[in-house]
C-alpha cells in the first residue's frame, strides 16, 4: 500500500499557466458559485485558432512540397505562449550517444510498490468519476518491449482539478483522489493503471482556453536517450482543434499516436472502462546483450 500521498508540494513555486511573470494571482476561489473574473485583455480563442491554422497550413504545404512528416511537437510553437522564451533558437546539435547515454537507470520493485498502479485505492474511500483501466505496452523504435522500466503518471481528478496548490480552477478537490501512479513494465513491456477519467480544465494561455482531458506519462527506456515525458488523450475529444499543446504536434498521424483507443473487450463489467495506449520510444543505439534481447532486463536478478 503506498503511503498516503501528502498534498504538501515539493515544488512550491508560483506555477500558473500565465504567460507573464507578473500576472496577478486570482484569490483562490473555493466556493462553488464563485466564477473567476475574466481577463478582458486576454487573447481570444479565435485569435489563437487563426494562428494555429496558419501554422498548420504552412506545414501541409511543406508536406505537399516533399518535406518529411514531423513526428514530434515543434519546440518553437508560439500559440502556446509560455513556449516563446523557453525554446532553443539554435538547432539541436547532433551527438553520438556515449557510454552512460547508452544505458538507463535501473528501477525495480524495490522502487515501486505494485499497488502504486491503482490510483483509486490511495485513500480510504472511492474517488468520484468514471473508473478506467489504461493499459498498453512500451516498445522501443525497433519494436522490442521495454521490460522492467519505470512508468510514472499524474493527472487531474474527474472535475479537472489537480492536487497542486497553484491550481486555482474552482472545481472540487476529491479527498479520495491524488492522481499519481507508478509501475514497472513487465517482461513484454506491458503496463496497466486503474484510475479515474480526468476532466478537462481551464488554463490561462488565452481567454476560454481548456485543455483536453489527458494523463501525463513519464517513461524510461533501456537507454537514457529514450527518456520522454508526454500526455495521453482520450478519443473523440472536441477540444483537440482548440488546444495549442496538442496542436504543437503538426502532423495528424503523430497526434493520433497520443490518443488512446477504447477497448470494450477489456472493459470490466460493472466496474471499469478500458483504454489501450502503446508508447514507442526511439530506437536503440547499442548492441544488446542476449539477456536484454530476451527481455530479461530489469531488477529481481541482482
Amino acid at each position: 500500500m503506498p503511503e498516503e500521498v501528502t498534498i504538501d508540494i515539493f515544488n512550491a513555486d508560483p506555477i500558473t499557466e500565465d504567460v507573464s511573470d507578473d500576472a496577478t494571482e486570482a484569490a483562490p476561489t473555493t466556493h462553488a458559485s464563485a466564477v473567476p473574473a475574466l481577463d478582458a485583455a486576454a487573447e481570444s480563442q479565435a485569435d489563437l485558432s487563426a494562428e494555429m491554422k496558419a501554422i498548420g497550413e504552412a506545414y501541409a504545404q511543406a508536406l505537399r512540397n516533399g518535406a518529411a512528416a514531423e513526428t514530434q511537437p515543434r519546440l518553437d510553437y508560439a500559440p502556446y505562449r509560455s513556449s516563446v522564451l523557453r525554446h532553443p533558437t539554435k538547432d539541436l546539435h547532433h551527438a553520438d550517444p556515449e557510454t552512460i547515454e547508452m544505458y538507463s537507470p535501473a528501477f525495480g520493485h524495490m522502487d515501486v510498490h505494485a499497488l502504486e498502479s491503482d490510483l483509486t485505492i490511495a485513500h480510504n474511500g472511492e474517488p468520484l468519476g468514471e473508473r478506467i483501466i489504461v493499459s498498453g505496452r512500451v516498445l522501443d523504435g525497433d519494436g522490442r518491449p521495454v521490460a522492467g522500466q519505470l512508468v510514472e503518471i499524474w493527472q487531474a481528478n474527474s472535475s479537472g482539478r489537480y492536487i497542486h496548490k497553484r491550481d486555482q480552477h474552482p472545481a472540487p478537490i476529491d479527498p479520495n483522489f491524488t492522481g499519481v501512479g507508478r509501475c514497472i513494465t513487465g517482461a513484454d513491456g506491458s503496463y496497466s493503471f486503474t484510475t479515474i477519467k480526468p476532466g478537462a480544465y481551464p488554463w490561462k494561455n488565452h481567454l476560454n482556453a481548456w485543455r483536453p482531458a489527458h494523463i501525463h506519462f513519464s517513461l524510461f527506456g533501456q537507454e537514457f536517450t529514450q527518456r520522454i515525458i508526454t500526455q495521453m488523450y482520450f478519443p473523440g475529444d472536441q477540444l483537440f482543434p482548440l488546444d495549442p499543446i496538442y496542436q504543437s504536434i503538426l502532423d495528424q498521424d503523430a497526434r493520433d499516436r497520443l490518443v488512446a483507443t477504447y477497448n470494450h473487450e477489456q472493459t470490466t463489467p460493472e466496474w471499469a472502462l478500458a483504454y489501450n495506449w502503446n508508447i514507442v520510444l526511439t530506437g536503440s543505439k547499442r548492441t544488446w546483450t542476449e539477456n536484454e534481447a530476451l527481455g530479461a532486463d530489469g531488477d529481481d536478478h541482482e
Partner: peptide, 22 residues
C-alpha cells in the same frame, strides 16, 4: 536484433505546470 521493425516514436509533450506532486 533479428527482425528490425522501425516504429515511429510517440511524440513528447510538455511536462506542464503540475508535476510538483508527482
Amino acid at each position: 536484433n533479428p527482425t528490425p521493425t522501425r516504429l515511429t516514436p510517440t511524440p513528447g509533450q510538455t511536462v506542464g505546470p503540475f508535476y510538483g506532486y508527482a
